[in-house]
Design a protein around this nucleic acid. Sequence first.
DNA 1: GAGTGGTCTAGACCACAGA
DNA 2: CTGTGGTCTAGACCACTCT
Lengths: 243, 243
Amino acid sequence: MEDKHPLPGNAPLYKQIKKLIIGRIVDGTWSPGKRLPSETRLGQELGASQGTVRKALDDLVSENLLIRHQGRGTFVTTHTAQRELFHFFHLVDNDGIKQLPVYSQLIDCSRRRATRDEAGRLKLSARAFVIAITRVRHLNNNPVICETIILPATRFAGLEQNDDIPNELYGYYESTYGITIHKATERLRAVTASNVEVAAIGLPVGSPLLEIDRVAETLEGEPVEWRVSRCDTQAHSYLSEII
Amino acid sequence: MEDKHPLPGNAPLYKQIKKLIIGRIVDGTWSPGKRLPSETRLGQELGASQGTVRKALDDLVSENLLIRHQGRGTFVTTHTAQRELFHFFHLVDNDGIKQLPVYSQLIDCSRRRATRDEAGRLKLSARAFVIAITRVRHLNNNPVICETIILPATRFAGLEQNDDIPNELYGYYESTYGITIHKATERLRAVTASNVEVAAIGLPVGSPLLEIDRVAETLEGEPVEWRVSRCDTQAHSYLSEII
DNA sequence: GAGTGGTCTAGACCACAGA
DNA sequence: CTGTGGTCTAGACCACTCT
C-alpha cells in the first residue's frame, strides 16, 4: 500500500483503506452499481480485520459513495432518479412536496468556445470548447425554470449531436460518459427576469427570479458542469434543511 | 431501560443508548457544554461494552449533538459563534467568504397576539402571544438583511423587555432560556422589495430580494422560532453545499 | 502518571437475501 | 442452506490532555 503526500504510511489503517477504495472507484475497478467484495474478503486481501474494513466502509457510506444492502452486499452508488430527486433537486411546491421536472423544452444545444467566465468556472484553458445547453423545465405542467448548462466539450464529446437529451442528466453523464457527479456547490441570489425569461416562463416584466448557480464536481474534485437555473418562485421554493 | 412506542425493547442496544442519552440532554441532566461520563464508565452503568457505547456516541456526534475532544472527553454541543457561522448562516460575499453580521439595527421588539400564519408555523393555539423582533443586519458596513423573528412568548418570557438583544441569537436562547436550536428548515424564494425594505436597505424601488423563510426546532422537534430574512443579493449570495 | 478518546483485533451471534 | 451485512463483546495498544 504505497501512498504519496496525502496519506502518510502511518495514517490510521482504515483511512488508508478508504483511500484505496476511492481509488478503485475512480479508476473504474469498481464502477457505479457494482458490488464490492464482502467485508471479510476485503479484510483478508488487505491484511486488516473485518471491523477495520467495516469502519472504512461506514465512512464511505456516510459520504454517499457506497450503499449497503443487508444480506446482499455493499455497492457503489449510482445516480438513480431517487438520488437525483432527494439529493440534487431542491425545489418544492407550496405544500412542501418535491416533484422532479418531467418535461424539459430544449431551446438550444451547441458547441462553441468558452467565455472567460465559463473557462474560469470549469478550470479550462482560455480557448477550450464547451457544450452549452439551454432549456426550460416544467413543473406541474407549467414552465418554471430557465436553465443554461455548460460542459467541457472534451469530456462530453459528441453530446451536442444528441437530439434526445434526457431530463435527468446526472444518470446520463454516468452511463454515457463515465462521469459521476459527487458534489455540487450552489450559490443563490434574487435577480430580475430578462426579456428572454419573461417570454419563456410567461411572467410580467420585472418579475423576480431565484437564480441557482451550481458548479458540480467529480469524486476527484474536478468541476465538470456549470449550471445556472433561474426559477419562478411564485408556486415553488428552494428547500434547505439544516441539521 | 423502559421504552414506549418509539423504540421497542428489542431495538439494537446502541439505539436504546442513543435514545437514553438524548433524553438526558433534553431533560437537562447533561446540559450544553457539559462533559459526559467516559465511554467505559457509561458502558458499566448501562451494562454495555465500550464499543457499543462508542457506536451510539459516534452517531450522536455525526448528528451534531455531541462533540469529542481526544484526551479530554465527550461534550454536549453548544451554540458557539463558530457553529452559528458554519452551520446556520449561509450568506457569503462575492469572493465566497463567509462573514457573520457584526451589527444589527433593532427596529422593533414587541409582544402581541399571534397572527394566523404565526400560530400555524409555531404550532401555537389561535390566540397565543408571540414576541416579534424586526431588525436590519449589516454585512461589511452595509445594510443587507431585513429580518423579522417570531418567538412564542411563553418560552421566551420577558425577552421583549431586553433592550440589548445580541446579534447572535441562538447562543442567547440557549444561555438565557435553556432552548437549544438543533435543526432548521429554510424555504427560499425571490421577491420584490417592499417600500419598508427599499428604505431600510437603500435600494431602487422594485429590486429583487432573496427571502429566507426559516423555522427552527429544538431537539424534540418543536418549532420555536420563525424567521423571515429578506436579503439584498447584489454583493452576497446564499451558499448551499451538496455533498 | 492517570484518564480520556482513537484505532485495531478476533470472535460470536443475529437478520436478511437469494439460490 | 450459504453468504452477506448488522450488532455486540472483551481486550489490547496508541495519542492526546491535564495535573
